[in-house]
């Protein structure tokens, strides 16, 4: 009996989807729009976070050591610094490495290279580059290092860069908040549009629902086909949306690569394809089924 009913509900949903062709198409298209916005939010948040992370990575503070400070001492301090709260990473740059980097940076400037060659000693200092988990709290890290009053520390470049670091940190934080708010607003609008479309679709079927009640159909038997139709709509919309994103990302990926430290968006999309599709499918099916249940409720009373 239950299986028979289930079969009937499925069949009735498929038939009604087909016979109400235009309404089904309109509903699916609106859901495609919704999913397009939601997919866009998912992808742009990945994009955004990658860019922000790469900016944050570049914010660091260097602690310079007097020339001839023994390497073991610096290595020792490195592990000490690592224990300071909020420190993400400490990287050691030896004197030789610093010189190498300096040369590399100024290789197009013969005057600098020549004057460097005239010097007998390496004039550059070894350093520890410290990056923070929360770049807004660099101040605390620097204070902790300063409090140790290490005799071998020459200077910390935080003070001169303080303003720039703090400003950049504030910008990244503000961007994250703005992004989140924007995402919520857009998602809300998209959900509302879908909900209203489904409601309209069910509104057109209100006489039908009335007749079903009249011939003695139970509430679940009436609801069933609408829910199954909701699932069909949702699944179709997810497939269509994913298909639309393919060429768009393929086209945009090379242009975005510059901002993304060489990460190719299309490769990312392909490797996360199933996650992406699952998010869209889940969103659309849950959305349309929930909308159907809510919309049909008022017609099922008595």
């Amino acid at each position: 009996m239950a299986i028979e009913s289930l079969k009937r509900i499925m069949k009735s949903a498929a038939v009604s989807f087909w016979r109400n062709g235009w309404l089904s198409t309109a509903t699916v298209l609106v859901m495609v729009l919704t999913l397009f916005v939601i997919g866009g939010l998912v992808l742009s948040s990945v994009l955004f976070n990658t860019i922000l992370a790469s900016v944050e990575e570049k914010i660091d503070v260097s602690v310079y050591f007097l020339p001839n400070t023994p390497e073991e001492l610096i290595i020792n301090l490195k592990s000490e610094f690592q224990k300071i709260p909020n420190v993400r990473e400490v990287a050691y740059v030896s004197q030789a490495e610093a010189l190498e980097r300096f040369r590399e940076r100024h290789k197009d400037n013969p005057v600098v290279i020549e004057s460097l060659q005239e010097l007998e000693d390496n004039p550059l200092e070894a350093s520890l580059n410290i990056s923070a988990i929360d770049t807004l709290k660099f101040q605390d890290i620097v204070t902790a290092i300063e409090a140790r009053q290490e005799p071998t520390v020459d200077k910390i470049n935080f003070r001169e860069n303080q303003l720039a670091i703090e400003r950049l940190s504030k910008i990244t934080t503000a961007s994250k908040t703005t992004g989140a708010v924007l995402a919520i607003v857009l998602a809300f609008v998209a959900v509302l549009v879908t909900f209203n479309t489904v409601r309209l679709a069910i509104y057109t079927a209100r006489d039908e629902i009335n007749v079903m009640r009249l011939v003695g159909a139970t509430a679940w038997y009436i609801r069933g086909p609408f829910l199954v139709e909701g699932i069909i709509d949702g699944a179709l919309a997810a497939v269509v949306t994913t298909a639309i994103y393919f060429p768009i990302i393929w086209f945009l990926a090379p242009k975005l690569q510059l901002f993304l430290d060489g990460v190719n968006m299309f490769d990312y999309f392909v490797s996360h394809f199933f996650e992406f599709f699952a998010i869209l499918l889940g969103t659309s099916v849950v959305l349309s089924v929930l909308s159907s249940i809510l919309a049909i409720r008022r017609y099922l009373k008595v």
């Binding site: 009996m1 039908e208 009335n210 007749v211 009249l214 011939v215 003695g216 139970t218």
Partner: peptide, 22 residues
Amino acid sequence: RLLPTKTAYENVAFALEAAGHL
């Protein structure tokens, strides 16, 4: 008050289906 998207047969059958007949 017939269901416009169902044929005469389906309209009549619907009442039996809803009542769970074989």
